[in-house]
């Protein structure tokens, strides 16, 4: 029943010339739609996530806000972020965003990951960490434009939301989606979710949210977790959601141009040495010289 490796379309640290099997990619891309405008921040998704995934984070502290635990961790894969925002007229809004992996179409984590198969992307768009392969380098953290993956202190491996790939692969919705009391989290094909999102945006605009919109950032190729925001023109209001997330140019450089350049340099160096040796021959001190020296000092 498990997701077969043939359904993987991207695999970390895999040479482009020897890609993951990807013939079986005729399947719908899935998406989780998070409608922030009807989210009550109840944290059912957090609890259901922990429950399904057998995670139990520490019982922490209250630091003067509702956000608990205080941050994502290897054992908190999704977290409600609360922001109190007053507009120019003094109208208060309590913006509550479910934070967690966005399942980018072009995942920065996967790009950055050096260990083959430690991060994979399935044909349906889910980006999953394969803990068994993870080496704990944390490059995924640097690769992620959303600051999502976390390294566990227990086993030094990176973790994040799997979009409940174990549920999705048997035809169920993710645990957070199922449990969401208000229907703020939905799940379906990406096409359907975008359609639903656009309906929600129209409804919100009708209620006076002129800036309502869909957050499906194209800088990372779109995401498989899509937000409906009341203020899509100001995503930073939602606990610093990046306006135009992209994989950092440093990561692009490192995983992009540097590789061929380095490969060429290696070839050039090795070839140079080879041809030099073959061409010039060994650089030997003539025996005569040595004898002469020995004589001199004898």
């Amino acid at each position: 029943m498990s997701m077969q490796s043939q359904d993987i379309i991207k695999r970390s640290a895999t040479n482009v010339l020897t890609p993951a099997p990807r013939a079986r990619d005729h399947q719908a891309e899935v998406a989780k739609l998070i409608d922030v405008s009807i989210c009550i921040g109840c944290k059912a998704c957090q609890v259901a996530c922990n429950e399904w995934n057998d995670l139990r984070d520490e019982v922490g502290h209250n630091v003067g806000v509702y956000d608990n635990p205080a941050d994502l961790s290897a054992e908190t894969w999704t977290l409600m972020r609360f922001d109190e925002v007053e507009d120019e007229s003094g109208k208060l809004e309590w913006l509550i965003r479910k934070d967690g992996c966005m399942h980018c179409a072009d995942p920065g984590c996967l790009k950055a990951c050096p260990q083959p198969g430690a991060i994979i992307q399935y044909a349906n768009g889910i980006v999953d960490f394969q803990s068994d392969h993870c080496i704990g380098c944390g490059y995924c953290i640097a690769g992620c434009p959303f600051d999502v993956p976390r390294i566990s202190k227990k086993d030094n491996k990176a973790y994040k939301c799997t979009l409940c790939v174990d549920r999705v692969s048997v035809g169920q919705e993710p645990a957070c989606v199922k449990t969401c009391p208000t229907g703020a989290i939905n799940f379906g094909s990406k096409q359907d979710m975008l359609h639903q999102a656009s309906e929600r945006v129209t409804e919100l605009q009708g209620r006076g949210f002129a800036g309502a919109g869909i957050y499906d950032p194209q800088g990372v190729g779109g995401t498989h977790v899509v937000y409906v925001l009341q203020h899509a023109d100001k995503p930073h209001l939602y606990h610093k959601l990046p306006t135009d997330p992209r994989i950092s140019s440093a990561i692009h450089g490192w995983k992009g141009w540097l590789k061929p350049v380095a490969a060429v340099a290696f070839f050039a160096t090795l070839a140079g040495t080879l041809f030099h040796y073959v061409g010039v021959g060994p650089n030997e001190v003539e025996e005569a010289d040595e004898k002469h020296e020995e004589d001199t000092h004898a």
């Binding site: 950055a112 944390g138 953290i141 640097a142 950092s248 990561i251």
Partner: peptide, 10 residues
């Protein structure tokens, strides 16, 4: 910070 780590990696 994550940006400095990215530069560090490169």
């Amino acid at each position: 910070s994550i940006p400095s780590i990215r530069i560090g990696l490169l």
